[in-house]
């Protein structure tokens, strides 16, 4: 699932955020990208791990990868899809 060849167009760190700001940050960051742009989201904890990829998918965006890091955080790669997302 890891996409080592993809270079993100933007990065955000939501490890210090709680719901609903975890997805608010992610959604705004996606909206600020051009269609097709890739966002890297650094996240931590069960709630965002469950909700952030799912909420992004619900809006029509694509989950490219979700990988654990050595420091206990996760790295989520999202691709911004159509204008209606």
């Amino acid at each position: 699932m890891w996409s080592p060849g993809v270079t993100p167009d933007a990065r955000i760190d939501i490890t210090a955020e709680v719901c609903p700001m975890t997805f608010v940050r992610t959604k705004i960051a996606l909206e600020r990208l051009p269609i097709g742009g890739v966002l890297e989201v650094r996240l931590k904890g069960d709630e965002p791990l469950r909700n952030v990829p799912e909420s992004a998918r619900d809006l029509g965006h694509t989950v490219l990868a979700l990988e654990p890091r050595d420091d206990g955080t996760w790295c989520l790669l999202l691709r911004r899809e159509g204008p209606q997302c």
């Binding site: 608010v24 909206e31 209606q84």
Partner: peptide, 17 residues
């Protein structure tokens, strides 16, 4: 503003724009 309107920003039809 992001803090104030966070719940609305989550809506598909709203967002930042």
């Amino acid at each position: 503003q992001i803090q104030r309107y966070a719940r609305q920003l989550l809506l598909r039809d709203v967002g930042e724009r």
